[in-house]
């Protein structure tokens, strides 16, 4: 297959301009890969094959390498995000105050495991190694907002309330 010299973005979505700008800022050098993937994820919410392929080709990074990088870092997601998400902090301070139990309660309530999204794409249950809120442990981050004062018993209600409040 003959590859075009100038690689076109996967679509004419305006967000690709931001991503192009990021790459340009780094002179389209291969080392801009992680920064560019951050930009893609921020713009589109996740990394799909088309965007990975585009970024890899534009930065002259082998595709397998781009895929390797995208899957190495837990911050990147290859799946579309859920409408709402709850990140349970599993940092030490949260853990010894029962955050693993909270994860379990939420998992049971939503019928999913940690790292999964409900089939209706409404809710994702995630965990973080530490969100740095050790002072308020145990904490969760619901749709980007830090929630404290949680227990394994109240976490389901608290999270539901937060989500309902948002939507």
């Amino acid at each position: 297959m003959v590859r075009p010299v100038e690689v076109a973005p996967p679509s004419d979505d305006k967000r690709w301009r931001i991503i192009n700008a990021t790459m340009r800022r780094y002179g389209y050098k291969p080392h801009a890969l992680i920064e560019t993937l951050h930009a893609v994820q921020e713009a589109f919410g996740f990394l799909d094959d088309a965007s990975l392929s585009f970024v890899a080709q534009r930065l002259n990074v082998p595709m397998s390498k781009a895929y390797g990088v995208a899957t190495f870092y837990h911050f990147f997601s290859l799946k579309p995000p859920a409408r709402h998400n709850c990140v349970i902090c599993l940092g030490t301070a949260c853990y010894i105050k029962g955050s693993d139990q909270m994860l379990k309660s939420l998992g049971e309530a939503y019928g999913i495991e940690e790292g999964e999204i409900t089939p209706d794409s409404e809710f994702a249950l995630l965990s973080a190694r530490c969100v740095g809120g050790c002072g308020q442990a145990p904490v969760a981050v619901v749709d980007g907002e830090v929630v404290s004062g949680l227990t394994p018993d109240n976490v389901v209600a608290m999270v539901r309330e937060k989500i309902n409040h948002a939507s």
Binding site: T92, A93, C94, Y95, R129, C130, G132, C134, G135
Partner: peptide, 11 residues
């Protein structure tokens, strides 16, 4: 890249 769980000094 402060990564230890339970550490937030650098942050």
């Amino acid at each position: 890249d402060e990564g230890d769980p339970g550490a937030f000094m650098d942050r």
